[in-house]
Write a protein that binds this DNA or RNA. Structure first.
Lengths: 125, 125, 125, 125
DNA sequence: GTGGTCTAGACCACA
DNA sequence: GTGGTCTAGACCACA
């Protein structure tokens, strides 16, 4: 659970933000529930506490979680984790498709690709 | 023409590779035609010659262009600029869509986004 | 009553000092009246007894309350809760205004802000 | 120039953000002008590069500056440094005044304080 | 214990 | 050289 790719070009803290957002969005962690402490999560993931903290701070800025010094970090009630993820995802899709269109991909080709993604049976992740 | 975004997270040399590939793919530059010299292009774009050099090297590795020491760089005949771009583009679209699906976007929502991209009139880029 | 903001940057014990001072200053608790015990107040507010203890100690240092070992804490007769609060408040206002002036706020803008605060009907707190 | 108080309760990076915002707001550094590099400024101020970077990143998030990896950090054109500072300043004044009002300060007393700040001759800072 | 700040120093890709 | 990321480790106030 919460698999990171330390070799990826995407920074670890960004992967963390994304994975945690997904878990929150999926309801795996619920509003007002406490997140693992910065140190605990860092230890469990084998990364540095500063990296976890950076991710937590970004999530806090985005209103997904809130942190109370001396107490811990918690899922914000009414957080927009899902909306945020969807919005970002749609932007990325739009960019990728616009790019493909410029390259000469036909509407049909893109539609076909989209369809194939949605027809793959439920995936492991 | 050949607009770069110096502030983008995407490295300039990658943007250059993509833009040049697009121009070649679109026939704006034809096989055996000569590309501007590394220094000229760097000066025109206001970027570092090392950056242009890196882009040219990658394009050569991909068989899109070829360089002749002392003479310059030329578009390779029979280059697969278009195929390369399309392949990469489809991969990126597939990844973005898979991501969106995981986030909870419906097939319909994605289709709608794709459609809207294709319905926008011819764009400036 | 005695609303704390656990997420505020201002430490809880400081908020406690301020709120208690306000209540004493406003006469909601009168000289020689007993304050709730450290443990009781901590339980009621859902905070750590150490935090309440720290606030009580500071209030005692300021001559606002006094404690009798084994009996409890009481409002000091002749306490200067009000004077203390007013003095601190004026200092903070002065600093905030000086800051605003440096930033370029006009005397008029600040006056207007002050007026708007005083014109808001009686507030909940 | 750019005096920091290393003993202050206010974190160094926040002081940096504020001071730089003030300089930009005052026109001491103009749009598109380059800021000192993270390392240079850190060395000059005798603090750690990470601390400077944190300040720069916050300023970038606020649209006050922009950073280009490998090139440097620059004042953003059309930045709202001044508006941002004024807005924050007015909020702080409003809070301080509301606090004072609750404590029992009269409108007149506050007005008098404000006036006195504005009547002090031009100050050094 | 908890989050927040800071230092010292390393490594990376890019310019 | 430049910004960006990350580690290791320290210290702080607060709870």
């Amino acid at each position: 659970m919460l698999q990171l790719d330390l070799q990826s070009r995407q920074p670890i803290y960004e992967q963390l933000i994304q994975k945690l957002s997904e878990m929150i969005s999926a309801g795996a962690i619920k509003p007002e529930e406490q997140l693992p402490s910065v140190r605990t999560l860092a230890r469990d993931l084998g990364i540095n506490p500063n990296t976890v903290q950076k991710a937590y701070q970004e999530l806090e800025r985005g209103g997904i979680i809130y942190s109370v010094a001396g107490r811990g970090s918690f899922i914000a009630p009414g957080n927009r984790a899902n909306e945020t993820l969807c919005r970002q995802s749609l932007i990325r899709i739009r960019e990728a498709v616009a790019d493909g269109r410029r390259t000469g991909l036909s509407h049909r080709q893109v539609e076909e690709t989209v369809r194939s993604v949605y027809e793959e049976g439920t995936k492991h992740d």
